[in-house]
Design a protein around this nucleic acid. Sequence first.
DNA 1: CTGTTAGCGCCTTCAT
DNA 2: ATGAAGGCGCTAACAG
Lengths: 346, 346
Amino acid sequence: MAASIEDVAKLAGVSIATVSRSLRGLPDVAAATRDKVLAAARELDYVASPFAARLASGRSSTIGVVVPFVHRWFFAEVLGAVESVLSQSGFDLLLHNLGSSEGREQFFSILPVRKRVDAVVVVSLALTEDEVEALKSLELPIGVLGAAHPGFFSVRIDDVAAAQTAVEHLVGLGHRRIALIGGDTDDPMRFTPPHHRLTGFRDALISHGITPDESLERLGYFTVEGGEAAMVQLLGLPERPTAVFAESDEMAYGAMRAIRRAGLRVPADIAVIGFDDHQTAGLLDLTTIRQPVAEQGAKLAAMLLASLTNPDSAQPSDVVMETELVVRGSTVASASEYADTTAATS
Amino acid sequence: MAASIEDVAKLAGVSIATVSRSLRGLPDVAAATRDKVLAAARELDYVASPFAARLASGRSSTIGVVVPFVHRWFFAEVLGAVESVLSQSGFDLLLHNLGSSEGREQFFSILPVRKRVDAVVVVSLALTEDEVEALKSLELPIGVLGAAHPGFFSVRIDDVAAAQTAVEHLVGLGHRRIALIGGDTDDPMRFTPPHHRLTGFRDALISHGITPDESLERLGYFTVEGGEAAMVQLLGLPERPTAVFAESDEMAYGAMRAIRRAGLRVPADIAVIGFDDHQTAGLLDLTTIRQPVAEQGAKLAAMLLASLTNPDSAQPSDVVMETELVVRGSTVASASEYADTTAATS
DNA sequence: CTGTTAGCGCCTTCAT
DNA sequence: ATGAAGGCGCTAACAG
């Protein structure tokens, strides 16, 4: 049987209260006493029972993290960053992978994090009002990655502006007939980026005197395969686009593949720009909008931890991180030298 | 303040013991009583405090999952499958992402799962003796994915045989000068596959009268970039290989890219076979060894749950799942038709 | 079938 | 600076 706080107290010759104080580094413990306790604890290989501690204190030192799909690059990257921050602070991470709209419904109706976490991180979900209410009913600090909600902490990028930047890069290269390969804004899983990137795409066109043409907006479902299929459709148009903005690098990969399979050249015949700066974007020479992925997760986790540590500063804040246009060979032929250099040194 | 079991008991007009029994679906409760309790619980929006339950029962309904890197495809896929099985059984999943050899050391010395999980799943780590001892000291059911250990549950594939199959496919096509792009068997993170796949590779060559040539064995570090760099080295050899076996599809992608950049053709000049059947392998027309990734994770989780539910059947078992050679255009030119079909329908 | 009563192992006032 | 003692909310015998 594992040692309990009482065993440590006996061995150290003090009360269990003193053991508790010493082990948690509370003040008002004599240095000599603390040392005795630490020695006894080490000797017995003691670790406090988290459940007893949580029951008594009401705090769980656990954060729930909700992702739509762990196995997709973006979410996995965020998750890794969050885990790293939490484990360094001695917090546990309870993972909830929604997986589907049924999983999502189930999560928000059951709220399996109830009574077991101190805060919740929600990644990239466009929350419905009901979902927001459900989260609020937890009466816990909530962190959202990818969208701002009053009362919640948030970290995100400016998707509208980033999409505009992408389109403006293409316009600046002389393109006027620009297609979009995006996520489904009606998707039952409701991700946030598609809405904003679509808005930015259309806004940028309009501000350059180009009328958005819905036949040039196709769904790529955030997968390589989807991007390829969408591009095939675009290539079948009477008047095909000269440039494509894909809302993710993975869809851009599919688009490039479709273009080349059709015997056309990137960027000579059709320029392609992606979004994310996925790890293989340099390798595939893809121009893209870089966003700090792990950094967003780490920042959000840190904000939540800070609010738990110091409930005074619990002012929910909204952090908007910078994105950056990374020009490579898929939009500017001569840029490929840069890309080669990047790929070789990475 | 959230409702407690006492509130429910009062409202239902029964004792807290009866509430507990009713809510947990234990036998020996009159149907009418149970209904009253359930109604009261619903009315008060009651959920039991897991910590109190865990303290009292000694069970946590939580499983710890340890992965080397969440953000890598294979591990993320496994994690998603494990999460799905656990959440369906009402179990919590505590995630531990090692991230580096320091993170690994820290995990096994601190054992942050102590006193908080009912079982542990370890993914793809070649465990040292000390690590095995550390896990055993938990006195919990341990599940290992990717390697067998006496006393632990395990699910895996036969990496040696699978690698042999890959090489035999190449030999069958007439290749004799076959290179390997693999993981580092001296990597501080010590993954299991590299050792076994290297063994299978060499064994297959030998059994066909081909002497393994170490200059044809290169490190690709399980990344696209690493695979490309390894292939560049192989292409620089006085006598270059006519075929390459990469221990992962991602390394194979890099190899194919290096080959094409060098102005050579796949498979005409150099055939390439990968490992995993990664989701984009069909798209990139890569011959590979398919292994059931999510299935391995789901199976292992289910085994552990079964052993917790029915401690009698707690016989640690070792399940070896099937792998399958998937022939596509990177080894057999005429196979590309199949690949196109696959890609179009997937 | 249902109620009573000890704990589970720790945190946290409140004294001293 | 330290100790004593009362919960935290539930489970699990044990009665009845």
